[in-house]
């Protein structure tokens, strides 16, 4: 079995920052595992601007923000980047199992940093009645289809929830020539940044229905329509307020879940409510030497904050390994 001083799982903004900080704090034998064929993680599909103002003091798109870290990490010695490498197992004594095309490998680490990000909540998690036709996508997946694959998932869209990805996708769909019939948000205000309400919703005159929820989805093979209904402060439907919205596509933008199944496998305590590691201190877990950073530690609004905190994780790992002073 190969042995490494530090194994980092995830090559998005968080994992790249952790690797850079670990190297700069004296860790000299780093393996970075990334399941995709490129570094950059979710930033690659976030082609819009709004990144980097805090960290780089300028406004960048997602791919540009990633590009700066990719260049930096490639210029550093002692960091091996293993692409198309999908971590599938982890033990309490820090053995990571991962798949590469055609083979499975195991690596024993002295310390591990997990930067595995989040997955999206689905329709099933918010309990919407009705049929189960095709045409219901999570917002981030629709973003990948449009921005990476060049496929437009639908022509007439309703967005459920007003997280930032949903708002950004409302604008993307309009720019790509689709109609966005509305954004339906159960809370009284958006969960996303105000700037995204302005530049993604108001700029394009998209109706946004606060204090509303989806009560039913219609359509046999493909989505045909949905019912929206006003709710009271306890989220109960108010009778007589129901109305239908015609659509062929529904995007779910209802929240993110930190991906922490691997560390759970290794015996790390997980908070059942948030799926984050139980932790008294930023980036630390219940198992010494296993660190978590970025969106898998907690859900962030802004990538600049992910970078800042993940740099701290890299330093923490260096301290744990006796390479840097606390």
């Amino acid at each position: 079995m190969i042995e490494r001083e530090l194994v980092i799982v995830g090559g998005g903004p968080s994992g790249m920052a952790a690797a850079i900080a670990a190297r700069e704090n004296g860790v000299k034998d780093i393996l970075l595992l990334e399941r995709d064929q490129y570094l950059g993680g979710i930033l690659n599909q976030c082609v819009h601007t709004g990144f980097g103002l805090e960290y780089f003091k300028e406004v960048l798109t997602g791919p540009e923000y990633a590009d700066r870290f990719i260049k930096k990490i490639r210029g550093l010695p002692d960091i091996e980047i293993s692409l198309r490498s999908f971590a599938v197992g982890m033990t309490g004594d820090k053995v990571v199992t991962f798949l590469k095309p055609g083979r499975m490998e195991r690596v024993k680490a002295r310390a591990i940093i997990m930067a595995t990000g989040c997955r999206e909540k689905t329709r099933e998690m918010v309990h919407i009645a009705g049929t189960r036709p095709s045409g219901i996508f999570s917002a981030g997946f629709a973003q990948k289809l449009i921005n990476i694959e060049g496929l437009l998932p639908g022509k007439e869209v309703v967005i459920v929830g007003s997280g930032d990805i949903g708002l950004i996708m409302a604008r993307r769909f309009v720019l790509e020539g689709a109609k966005v019939s509305g954004v339906v948000e159960i809370q009284g205000q958006s969960r996303g940044l105000v700037r995204n309400i302005v530049q993604c919703i108001e700029d394009f005159d998209i109706p946004i229905y606060f204090n509303h929820k989806i009560s039913r989805i219609y359509g046999r093979d493909r989505v045909e329509a949905l019912d929206a209904v006003r709710v009271d402060e306890n989220f109960n439907e108010i009778s007589g307020t129901k109305f239908a919205l015609k659509c062929d596509t529904i995007l779910m933008s209802v929240g993110l879940i930190p991906e922490n199944e691997l560390i759970e496998m290794a015996g790390v305590a997980i908070d059942r409510k948030t799926n984050s590691p139980v932790s008294e201190e930023l980036n630390k877990t219940s198992v010494p030497g296993i660190f978590v950073c970025g969106n898998s530690f907690k859900v962030y609004d802004i990538v600049d904050s992910v970078t800042r905190d993940s740099l701290a994780a890299g330093k923490l790992a260096a301290e744990y390994l006796g390479r840097a002073r606390a």
Partner: peptide
Amino acid sequence: RRVLTSSVLTESLELKLAPVK
């Protein structure tokens, strides 16, 4: 005014789309 971001189709490149602004 707004900065416009999108992506353009490619031919014989490693990605189907190239992001632009």
